[in-house]
Computed example of a mutant assay.
Amino acid sequence: MSTALSRPRRAVVTGASSGIGAATVRRLRTDGWDVLATARRADRLAELAAETGAEAFAADVTDADDVARLAAHVQATGGLDALVNNAGGAFGLDPVADADVEQWRAMYEINVLGTLRVTQALLPALRERGEADVVVVTSTAAHGAYEGGAGYTGAKHAERMLATTLRWELVGEPLRVIEIAPGAVETDFSLVRFDGDAERAAAVYAGYQPLVADDIADTISWALSRPPHVNVDLLVVRPRAQASNTKTARTGV
């Protein structure tokens, strides 16, 4: 965060193989950061590394051993100035009465416990650096409910509480905790949610202009670039057409 640093700042970005994560890697590299991009899909990470000059590190945030390897690598290769907890996802859109327990479990594992594992593991490196940042990419689902979304909104509410509580617990230390809560962003998010049903996924973004991954990467970059005494507690970023999780102005649909 300090302009007096002679070395580039270094960030870890989780969920970096696609969507918001990949866009954030590209943006931070453009801004002059050293970036360690991590995700499960090693092939996509390798392509991103070749494109951007980022370092690729294949790891699953739901696997404790993988996270331990990631933390050891960070400590051994230069420390850390920022962690961008971006890995996450939604599975299914079923009502509570018909919800798949395993889908709920998977959402809690990646969105909540994955963020917890990585943050716990990398917090020592951030503390050693002094001024450093933890970014948690939640969702507008962390701030409101919608029918069919209880599993995802519940997981994202929990992730939001993780970020908020961590901020309270770190107060007085030179560490910032920043929550970025995107609304509708056209990535492969809905394709994953609907198990590859392209038509159903496309319908989520029909009739209005959704955000794109670069919009959120730009927001993350801006928040990280604030002076060290400025903490951006929360940024909710929606398309102009989206007033809430359940109200979007659509045309021609």
Rank of each mutant, 00 (worst) to 15 (best):
Met1Gln: 10
Met1Ala: 11
Met1Trp: 10
Leu5Thr: 11
Arg10Val: 05
Ala11Gln: 06
Gly15Leu: 09
Ser17Asp: 05
Ser18Trp: 06
Gly19Ala: 03
Gly21Tyr: 00
Val25Lys: 01
Arg27Glu: 13
Leu28Ser: 03
Thr30Met: 11
Asp31Cys: 12
Trp33His: 13
Asp34Gly: 10
Asp34Phe: 07
Leu36Gly: 00
Ala37Trp: 00
Thr38Asp: 04
Arg40Ile: 06
Asp43Met: 09
Asp43Phe: 07
Glu47Ala: 15
Ala50Ser: 14
Thr52Gln: 08
Glu55Ser: 08
Thr62Ile: 05
Asp65Gln: 13
Asp65Met: 10
Ala68Gly: 15
Ala72Met: 03
Val74Arg: 02
Ala76Glu: 13
Ala76Asn: 13
Thr77Trp: 10
Asp81Tyr: 06
Asp81Arg: 09
Leu83Met: 05
Asn86Cys: 09
Asn86Val: 00
Asn86Thr: 02
Gly88Lys: 00
Gly88Met: 00
Gly89Asp: 05
Phe91Asn: 05
Gly92Met: 08
Leu93Ile: 14
Leu93Cys: 14
Ala97Ser: 14
Asp98Cys: 09
Asp98Met: 15
Val101Gly: 11
Glu102Ile: 12
Glu102His: 15
Glu102Asn: 14
Tyr108Pro: 00
Glu109Phe: 09
Ile110Val: 14
Leu113Glu: 13
Thr115Ile: 02
Leu116Lys: 01
Gln120Pro: 01
Ala121Glu: 02
Leu122His: 01
Leu122Pro: 03
Leu122Val: 04
Pro124His: 10
Ala125Gln: 12
Arg127Ile: 00
Glu128Lys: 14
Arg129Thr: 11
Arg129Asn: 14
Gly130Ser: 04
Glu131Ala: 14
Ala132Trp: 01
Val134Lys: 01
Val137Met: 04
Thr138Val: 12
Thr138Pro: 05
Ser139Met: 06
Thr140His: 10
Ala141Gly: 10
Ala141Phe: 01
Ala142Leu: 08
Gly144Phe: 03
Ala150Thr: 13
Tyr152Ile: 02
Gly154Tyr: 10
Ala158Asp: 03
Glu159Pro: 02
Met161Ala: 12
Leu162Trp: 14
Leu166Glu: 02
Leu166Trp: 06
Leu166Thr: 00
Leu170Gly: 00
Leu170Pro: 01
Gly172Tyr: 09
Glu179Ile: 03
Pro182Asp: 06
Pro182Thr: 04
Ala184Gly: 11
Ala184Pro: 07
Ala184Thr: 14
Val185Leu: 03
Phe189Glu: 04
Ser190His: 06
Ser190Asn: 11
Phe194Glu: 02
Gly196His: 04
Asp197Phe: 03
Ala198Leu: 09
Glu199His: 07
Ala203Ile: 08
Val204Ser: 03
Val204His: 05
Gly207His: 13
Val212Gln: 09
Val212Cys: 09
Ala213His: 01
Asp214Arg: 09
Ile216Met: 03
Asp218Gly: 12
Ser221Asp: 06
Leu224Val: 11
Ser225Cys: 11
Ser225Asp: 15
Pro227Phe: 12
Pro228His: 14
His229Phe: 15
His229Pro: 05
Asn231Asp: 10
Asn231Arg: 09
Asp233Ser: 12
Asp233Glu: 14
Leu235Ala: 11
Leu235Tyr: 05
Val237Arg: 12
Val237Phe: 12
Pro239Ala: 12
Ala241Asp: 11
Ser244Thr: 11
Asn245Glu: 06
Thr248Gly: 04
Gly252Met: 07
Gly252Arg: 13
Val253Pro: 08
